[in-house]
């Protein structure tokens, strides 16, 4: 019994990190209609900045995670201005598919640029952020894991509050529902787009920074989280930020189950099998809101 509870706890924590990535992806897809395949690269940058903050500047863990988020926010806004603004001016037709390849291009550039600039060394934290372990039902869990899980949950809750309670957040939601209408009531679309993209990148960066205790910064560290966040996003559907927490936990749980029953290699088969099944039965996702961005044409 203890073992089962423990398994549940570790899958919740595992899934929690996927959620934070998925939220950013969902935000950008909902507001800007961009299928962002460069999301993992912002995660990667977050990891590098957090390393920089924590080892080079010797900031405390919370500050270095915040530093990573802020730095990548700026980079994200820059990328949006440099790439998506010109595209938006020119491309009306096939926007989604154009952004698809565009973000793949961004991802290739960023991975290799990072490799040129900082080299191939792995940058990791020797002792993690917070040393020590906790005991839960006689089994250990590191403090890093618990605290960083709480940080990522706080980030998601913060985002939800921001979207629901602030003027800017409401404006973002308005744009995601009807861009033209929002423009008519005087919302500056260009600003909203840049801000949203930056915000989404910052969320990815926070995820990368949180997980630095476990995943050292390398040029390709963002690949796996990118995939996982797409799994979560498609599983829960678009336009539902809170639901991605549940989605992340479901994916985490499926993977834990697969490791237990079949072996680590079958993790993807297990989670993808369920997600594909879900796509067939309920194409809008488990918690997809009708009319936001529909899967069915």
């Amino acid at each position: 019994m203890d073992n089962i509870i423990y398994a549940v706890i570790i899958s919740v924590i595992r899934g929690g990190f996927y959620s934070l990535m998925a939220v950013g992806l969902s935000l950008v897809f909902g507001v800007m209609n961009i299928a962002n395949f460069a999301h993992g690269e912002f995660y990667m940058l977050g990891a590098y900045f957090a390393y920089c903050g924590s080892v080079v500047f010797r900031l405390n863990p919370f500050l270095s995670i915040l530093f990573a988020g802020a730095a990548v926010f700026v980079i994200g806004v820059g990328v949006e201005k440099a790439v998506f603004v010109p595209l938006r001016v020119r491309s009306k037709k096939n926007w989604l598919m154009n952004t698809f390849l565009l973000t793949l291009g961004i991802s290739i550039i960023m991975q290799n640029l990072v490799r040129v600039v900082v080299g191939n060394r792995n940058y990791g934290l020797r002792r993690g952020y917070f040393q020590g372990n906790m005991q839960i039902f006689g089994m250990g869990i590191s403090n890093d894991r618990i605290i960083c899980f709480l940080i990522s949950m706080a980030a998601i809750v913060g985002l939800m509050l921001f979207l629901n309670r602030t003027r800017l957040g409401r404006a973002i939601r308005a744009v995601s529902q009807d861009a033209t209408g929002a423009q008519l009531v005087g919302i500056n679309l260009g600003f909203i787009y840049s801000f949203t993209f930056g915000l989404s990148c910052a969320l990815a960066a926070i995820a990368g920074a949180c997980l630095l205790f476990k995943d050292p910064a390398t040029p390709i560290v963002g690949l796996a989280p990118l995939y996982k966040s797409w799994f979560v996003l498609i599983l829960v559907g678009m336009g539902n930020v809170g639901a991605s927490i549940i989605g992340g936990i479901i994916v985490g749980f499926l993977e834990t189950l697969a490791v237990d029953w079949l072996g680590s290699g079958w993790m993807d088969v297990m989670s993808l099998g369920i997600i594909m099944l879900m796509l067939i039965i309920k194409p809008n996702g488990l918690f997809g809101k009708k009319g936001v961005k529909s899967a069915v044409e």
Binding site: I13, R14, D215, A224, V259, G263, S264, G265
Partner: peptide
Amino acid sequence: EDWVPVGETEFYPLLNK
């Protein structure tokens, strides 16, 4: 016996097993 995918860094489930 277990084979983990390249680049996997999450081993709690495996180690627990």
